[in-house]
Nucleic acid binder design. Structure first.
Lengths: 165, 165
DNA sequence: AGGTGATCCTTGCGTTCGCAACTACTCCGG
DNA sequence: CCGGAGTAGTTGCGAACGCAAGGATCACCT
C-alpha cells in the first residue's frame, strides 16, 4: 500500500473525473464559441446570455433579481452587464409600478434584432460541434442527465415565470 | 408563421438547451464547491486545479505550457497562478536543463500535503452532490458523453505525458 | 557560422467579476 | 401610525483573467 497508490486512487476517482470533464468541456466550448460570437455580433458571453433570457421572456422584460438567478451572474455583476447593454442601446431599464425598489431590464428593438441575428449563427456552431461528438439521441441523454444535475445544484433556475406587475 | 414562433423555435432548440444546461451546471458546481474548498483549504478553483495536475504528474512537476494546456488557463493566467502558489510555498519553479527557455512548476512538500488534504473533502462534496442527482451508472454514462465532447473541443488535454528531460 | 522564424514564458494594460457596504423601499407586528 | 427586519438594486474595492507585446532561446536551413 504505497502512498502513491492512494494519491492516484483519489485523484482518479470516477466522480472527480466526471467533474473535471465537465469543467474542461465548459472551458473548451467557451473558447470555441465565445470569440466568434463576440467578433461577429459584439456579444461576449454574459451579454448574450442576458439577451437570450430577455427575448424568451414575456414582454421581453425581466426583473434584475430574476435575471441574476437565471444567469451565472451575481446581482452586482448583472447590474454592470445591464449597464453595458444600456450603453449599447440594446436594453433599457424600466421602473416596476408595484415595487419602487425594483427595476426591469427591457429589450429594445435594437437588442431584439441583435440577438435574433446572433442566435442562428451561434446555434449553427453549437450544432456543428455537438454533431462531431454525439448523435442526436446521445445529446438528448446528455441533456437529461445534466438537467437532473442542474436541479440539484441550482434549483431556482426555472422559476419566476410569473410576472405580477 | 408568426415571428414569435421562430424565436422560440430557435431559442429552445435542443442543442442550445444542452449547452445552456452545461453552463448552468458548471456555474452551480463552482458555486457549491468553490467556497468550501477555499475556506477550508485556502485553494480557490484554479489553484486547486493546478495542484491536482501536478500531484498526478511524474516527478510532481510539469512544464508551464503543458500545465496551461491541461487547465482552463491561458499561458499568462497560468504564470500568475503559479506566482501565487510560489508565494504560498506550495510550488517551486525549476529550470529545464534541455531548454533554457522552459520552466517547470514543481510541487513542494507543503504543496503535496495541502492538496492531499483537500482532495478527500472535495471528493466527498462532489460525491454527495452527484449521488443526489444520478446513479453510479448514470455518472459513468455522463462521463463517457462528456469525454467524447471534450475530445472534440479540446483534443490536447490528455497528451504530453512524456517528460523528456 | 549566421540568420530567420517559431516557441516559452513573462509583463503592461484594460476588462470583468464578486463581496461587502450602502441607499431606498416594502412588509409586518404592536 | 411607527419602528425594525428584510429585500432590490447599485457602488467601492480588490482580485483575477486574457490579449498583445516583449525578451530570451531554440531549430532549421543555407
Amino acid at each position: 500500500m504505497a502512498r502513491a497508490t492512494d494519491v492516484n486512487e483519489l485523484a482518479e476517482h470516477p466522480n472527480l473525473t466526471a467533474v473535471g470533464l465537465l469543467v474542461e468541456v465548459h472551458a473548451g466550448l467557451a473558447a470555441s464559441l465565445g470569440p466568434s460570437l463576440e467578433a461577429d455580433h459584439g456579444l461576449p458571453g454574459q451579454r448574450f446570455e442576458v439577451l437570450l433570457r430577455l427575448v424568451r421572456s414575456p414582454g421581453e422584460r425581466l426583473r434584475m433579481t430574476d435575471l441574476a438567478a437565471q444567469t451565472t451572474l451575481s446581482a452586482s455583476g448583472l447590474t454592470r452587464v445591464v449597464d453595458r447593454l444600456v450603453d449599447e442601446g440594446l436594453v433599457e431599464r424600466a421602473a416596476c409600478p408595484s415595487d419602487r425598489r425594483g427595476a426591469y431590464a427591457v429589450l429594445t428593438a435594437a437588442g431584439r434584432t441583435r440577438v435574433l441575428t446572433a442566435v442562428p449563427d451561434h446555434l449553427e456552431q453549437i450544432t456543428s460541434i455537438l454533431a462531431q461528438a454525439l448523435s442526436p439521441h446521445e445529446i438528448e441523454t446528455l441533456s437529461a442527465l445534466l438537467r437532473r444535475l442542474r436541479d440539484v445544484v441550482h434549483p431556482d433556475a426555472t422559476r419566476h415565470t410569473d410576472t405580477d406587475c
